[in-house]
């Protein structure tokens, strides 16, 4: 029998975290401001969008259960959507070229490929954690946080996590074979930024378009997090069910594809 250490799985997860940590430190080691960029970038975007869309255009979110009379302004709801978008585009853009960018690991050493994927996901999770911290800080500042909202936000986060993991695994597995994947998703992400209620509330969208908007997975991810954080509300239960089920399905497909192609990835990168 092959002598596989029982702790190999745990060791591999530690290895993934090690890689993620080194990737992060390698990225920020060369810059003088280091980790400040991680906070500065979203805050700058928040500033300029709030000025243009919130102040110039006067877009704001209304609290639904108060008859739509009282507004919560632009900054917080927008910031939730922006954070989701930034995290997703970070994961998508890095996943499509993941194995090509880690070529020496893939073709020169017996590196389990899923560890590379996990490392990238963990790296993105650190960025997501910082974004979450900023969002919650802003929500706290505006006194919008409720315990009920936090709980449903956590559930929403789990759904999003499954979706993002599945998507990144699928893209990482397909990326080395189809060069168009990375270009196509780059374009798709730019389109989705405006096709998702990030810079505007859903209520501004004419009714006939609503169903189309909800077909966009980014819409449900944004709404799953925005509703509980900003309004302390949950979405209808069936939304959670659909999102979670489809995320699981995506993850399953991704896992199957990855299992099928992982042997030949080192031939093509």
């Amino acid at each position: 029998m092959p002598r596989i250490p029982r702790t190999l799985f745990i060791e591999n997860i530690r290895l993934a975290w090690d890689l993620a940590r080194r990737d992060l430190s390698a990225k920020y080691r060369r810059s003088a401001m280091g980790w400040v960029w991680l906070i500065l970038t979203p805050l700058c975007l928040l500033g300029i969008y709030s000025l243009v869309f919130g102040h110039f255009f006067g877009i704001e979110w209304k609290i639904p259960h108060l008859g739509g009379a009282v507004g919560v302004g632009f900054a917080l709801p927008f910031f939730v959507g922006l954070s989701v978008y930034l995290v997703l585009s970070d994961v998508v853009n890095s996943s499509t070229v993941l194995f090509a960018s880690k070529r020496t690991y893939v073709v020169k050493s017996p590196f389990p490929l899923w560890v590379i994927w996990l490392a990238n996901l963990l790296r993105a999770a650190v960025h997501a954690g910082v974004a979450l911290f900023l969002v919650l800080a802003l929500a706290l500042l505006q006194q919008r946080l409720t315990f009920f909202g936090l709980c449903w936000m956590a559930i929403g986060l789990v759904c999003c996590g499954v979706f993002v993991s599945g998507l990144s695994l699928l893209l990482a597995a397909l990326g080395p074979f189809v060069g168009d994947v990375s270009e196509a998703f780059r374009l798709l992400l730019r389109v989705l930024f405006y096709a998702t209620p990030i810079t505007y509330p859903m209520t501004l969208v004419p009714q006939p378009y609503h169903d189309w908007m909800w077909l966009n997975p980014l819409t449900s991810m944004v709404e799953l997090l925005r509703e509980p954080i900003v309004f302390g509300q949950m979405l209808p239960l069936y939304v959670y069910g659909i999102v979670f089920a489809s995320s699981l399905l995506l993850f399953g497909i991704a896992l199957w594809v990855f299992q099928q192609v992982k042997g030949v990835i080192s031939d093509v990168v």
């Binding site: 060791e11 290895l15 090690d18 080194r22 390698a26 080691r29 020496t104 690991y105 050493s109």
Partner: peptide
Amino acid sequence: TAGFNPNFTGRENAYLFCSI
């Protein structure tokens, strides 16, 4: 350069190699 990362130090790469 089997599994080495050019941006890490020799020590870090040794750790990386061993964990691989």
